[in-house]
Simulated assay, not measured.
Amino acid sequence: MNNIHIRIADWQKDNAELRRIREKVFIAEQAVPPELEWDADDQGAVHFLALDGDYAIGTARLLPDGHIGRVSVLKDWRGLKVGDALMQAAIAEAERRGLQEQRLSAQVHASAFYERLGFKIISGEFLEAGIPHVDMLRHSQ
């Protein structure tokens, strides 16, 4: 992971890379309908790109209300702490913006990953795009 780094992305300039990753992970792998993947929130969100050298391998977004979402890492880079790095970047940016609470809707199978980052489950299970999710909340120290 020594060549992997995270940077804030520009929704306009980095759009092709952000879309490539999210389409591969959410639409192709997880069968999320495209009309549910793309929403008006993308325009006003802070986007993050994980890169291996110059190649984009992961993404996440932070909404103005502290909601973190669209966390996705290409299959060949999973298990290398890329998701951890994306989440740490999103949490740090949220805190830098004074957002003392960070929220997310986690796929149930990934909830333990988010719990390790300080998130707590605050809802029962529900379906989103046909996938079981739970809402989670983290309070900054």
Rank of each mutant, 00 (worst) to 15 (best):
N2W: 01
N2G: 08
N2D: 14
N2I: 04
N3R: 14
N3H: 12
H5C: 05
R7L: 12
W11R: 11
W11G: 00
Q12K: 15
Q12L: 13
N15E: 13
A16M: 04
E17W: 00
L18N: 12
L18C: 14
E23L: 07
E23I: 04
E23K: 12
E23C: 08
V25H: 13
F26I: 03
E29R: 08
A31E: 14
V32Y: 05
P33T: 12
E37F: 04
E37S: 07
E37L: 07
E37A: 06
D39I: 09
A40V: 13
D41W: 05
D41R: 12
D42F: 10
G44A: 09
V46T: 15
H47P: 06
H47M: 01
L51I: 04
L51N: 02
D52C: 11
D52F: 11
D52G: 05
A56H: 10
T59W: 00
T59K: 02
A60K: 01
R61F: 02
R61V: 10
R61L: 11
L63Y: 01
D65E: 15
G66Y: 07
G66T: 08
H67T: 14
I68W: 01
I68M: 10
G69L: 05
R70N: 12
R70V: 06
V73P: 07
L74S: 15
D76K: 15
W77I: 05
W77A: 13
R78K: 05
G79S: 02
G79A: 10
V82N: 07
G83L: 07
D84W: 04
L86D: 12
L86V: 09
L86R: 12
M87V: 15
M87T: 10
Q88L: 11
A89N: 11
A90I: 02
A90H: 02
A90W: 01
A90R: 09
I91A: 04
I91F: 02
E93W: 02
E95F: 11
E95P: 09
R97A: 14
G98S: 03
L99G: 11
Q100S: 13
Q100N: 08
Q102I: 11
R103T: 14
L104K: 04
A106G: 06
Q107A: 07
V108D: 03
V108Q: 05
H109E: 10
H109P: 02
A112S: 14
R116K: 15
L117E: 00
L117F: 07
I122K: 04
S123W: 03
G124V: 09
E125I: 14
L127C: 05
E128R: 05
G130W: 05
I131W: 00
P132M: 00
H133Y: 06
M136L: 09
H139D: 01
H139Y: 02
H139V: 04
Q141Y: 01
